[in-house]
Amino acid sequence: MEAASIHNEGGASPFKRASRAIGDKLLPIFAGLAILYMLIPIVVIAVFSFNDPQGRYNFEWVGFTTEHWANAFGIPELTSSLVTSLQLAAVATVISAVLGTMIAIALVRYEFYGRKPTNFLIVIPLATPEVVIGAGLLSMFISFSFPLGFVTLLIAHVMFCISFVVVVVRSRLIGFDRSLEEAARDLGATPAQTFRLVTLPLIAPGIISGSLLAFALLIDDFVISNFNSGTTVTFPLYIFGASQRGIPVEVNVIATILILVALAAMAIVLWQQYRADKMAKVEPEPDPMQEHPRESRKHAVTKQTP
């Protein structure tokens, strides 16, 4: 109360008013600079995908050409590394989505021994440095003499991504109105039908956005992959290798494509969240007009029962 009135008085003084006017002008400028700072590297990559460099290095602007876009998949090693990455990310995403959803349901819906520790442990992969995860997995694979390759990459990626799916789906489940499931049961749906017809469609936005987040993280993972790839080359590993000898412009082309795909994925995530918010609005909003008489009536009742 006190603080608010002081603030109001301050706002009325001419000095404060002037400084606020300056602030109002400066804010968009700073915001614009911050956005520029984040976007410049991305824009540079996209612009240089149209460059026509003479040597092996694509660092100086030479001239405009669409040749590399036409030839985007002309380098076999690059294309195959991209395919590997996409396959890996797709399979890992599907596995993490299924397992992550199941874990989230178990954590939210059931009381079991070790639930609280699990709730905590599930976020550890998110907080652990990738270097540690990568090195740890590598030493484990070696000690089990497990051959490194696509499968070890898959195991590493699933392990990392389950956490993302669990965290997103769990928050969706916590806000879930359980009476919807009771209504389905009440209308004759078996537990399996209830899950398929009511629970799953309602948590789907969470599963989809969790999976897309996982996919976006997987497609460009370098650190963990570098430890556990064996002879398998993923897209980030290829770029890293190529950068030693000079990066072909096609890398910029494919990177630009990936950025566009990621933007599309983000749009889907936002749309899913919008859909989820819209669904959440179904619950009746208590009317302030009628809250009062009900409350007072309750009050009259409590008086009667000492």
Partner: peptide, 20 residues
């Protein structure tokens, strides 16, 4: 008998309409 096998139906306070 679980709820889905009983000859009863319920109108819930929160309506519990399927939003999708």
């Amino acid at each position: 008998l679980p709820a889905h096998q009983r000859p009863t139906n319920t109108v819930f306070q929160s309506y519990a309409l399927f939003p999708h």
